[in-house]
Design a protein around this nucleic acid. Structure first.
Lengths: 245, 245
DNA sequence: CGCTCCCTTGAATGAGTTCAAGGCGCGTGG
DNA sequence: CCACGCGCCTTGAACTCATTCAAGGGAGCG
């Protein structure tokens, strides 16, 4: 029988090393596949879910990118993070079963849906899955802490350079170029995420551009001198942090 | 046989509703108790653990308070959070088995140590424990996101008011006064946590003091007008947020 | 008593914001 | 195919809030 959902194949998914199947044996992966649902693509600016919605599933990014944000009483938003392929969205719902962020697609994107009821069931049976889930949760916490450090005491220049380098590294981990990629989010989103204004972001990009460190063409960014960026960022990084060279 | 460790009694611990035993049956709690170790008190400024240390145990605050922070390459620190009784420290180690923050005591404090090996073992056997661990992890993520929102686009006044209100609520949840408590951390720590300078923190406290909203005596703070604080903070809060009145 | 540490207060400075205008790319419609 | 208009981004100039620099107060302790 034809399903409205596409066939799910975690075993051969190039993202599996970054995603939930990591560390699982092939037979365990196939059990995981059985509970995963692939939905139709989500268009740019469409919501994946909204703050306060009941969480029935976690979502892994299959392709594209997403932005998560928290809306405040005064109508403002604070962007909390950007999600790239292989990353898991909805972990904040573990607190009380509701999402604490809204998530929208930045471009046409697809997700793998993981129904919580079945995921819980399965992770009780597969210790490796349980372990990987906790690893992912720990990764989320560490990355949130890095954001706190970034927002805490850093200049606009440092914030901008860090932002570019983080994207560079994440794309690189996905097998994409670390020196040439698109900023799928708007300048507004970058600014909001970094605790800056859109004008400041624009100016910082200009400065880096004029120095020849990067080349900006609309949404496309090319990093001409990774080392310059690293030099800007280095003093702000945790002692533990090591750039992949 | 006398142990160097004190007798652990989660069942009658007044913190159990906030801590790991929450949601467990009495028999499950007693199994948890068996793996918990109480160590001798930690003095102010002593490290509980250091960034990069291998994580063999999680720690729950039994009494006192702690500060967690990340050290950067340039020798600066960024305070990431403050821990009060009932809260679990070390969750960031789930990423790769190492702590990503350092934690020091702000005053003489005690902790309950939860050896990871035995905790993992036990949580595989007790689904309720597993569930509560995920709830706590989710709570940590949500609270980190709240910090990101706070640091992102808020004025010094809003940051300061939010900080005081958050403490007020956390103390209140612990059964302490919500209007009178000590700031166990230094001004420097508050400033660093909020992404401000120590002078700005001092000035903000003075302003609130002169308005009569709070009374500050050294480390002691008395909130004279909770509503004024809430009025300052309200526009910055997630839509979902409701103050306990 | 004198020292130190921590905090407060004042005045000058400056990084980033705000306000304002203009440019560029792109889709739509003439 | 070009003109127009819109959304998004860039740039400039004035301003502002927090920082920086500097000095002083006060609690705690030897």
């Amino acid at each position: 029988m034809e399903s409205v959902f596409h066939k799910v194949d975690c075993l051969h998914c190039r993202l599996s090393a970054l995603c939930l199947p990591y560390g699982l044996r092939p037979d365990e992966i196939s059990r995981l596949e059985n509970i995963v649902q692939r939905k139709r693509p989500i268009k740019a600016d469409d919501y994946l879910y909204r703050q306060e919605d009941q969480c029935l599933s976690l979502f892994a990014v299959k392709s594209g990118s997403f932005r998560s944000f928290i809306s405040n009483a005064d109508g403002n938003e604070q962007t909390v993070g950007f999600y790239l392929p292989g990353e898991l969205m909805g972990l904040d719902s573990f607190k009380n079963g509701r999402f604490h962020c809204s998530v929208v697609a930045l471009e046409t994107s697809t997700v793998c849906e993981l129904p919580l009821s079945r995921l819980n069931e399965l992770s009780n049976k597969i210790p490796n899955l349980q372990a990987q889930l906790l690893r992912i949760v720990g990764t989320q916490i560490v990355s949130d802490h890095d954001k706190i450090v970034l927002l805490g005491n850093r200049s606009a220049t440092e914030k901008m350079a860090t932002f570019l380098l983080m994207l560079s590294q994440r794309y690189s981990a996905l097998g994409f170029s670390s020196t040439e990629f698109n900023l799928t989010m708007h300048r507004h989103d970058i600014a909001n995420f970094l605790g800056l204004t859109i004008e400041t972001v624009s100016r910082q990009l200009s400065v880096l551009s004029k120095k020849g460190v990067i080349t900006v063409k609309q949404r496309g960014v090319q990093i001409n001198n990774l080392d310059s960026l690293k030099t800007i960022v280095e003093p702000c990084l945790p002692n533990s942090f090591k750039f992949v060279s």
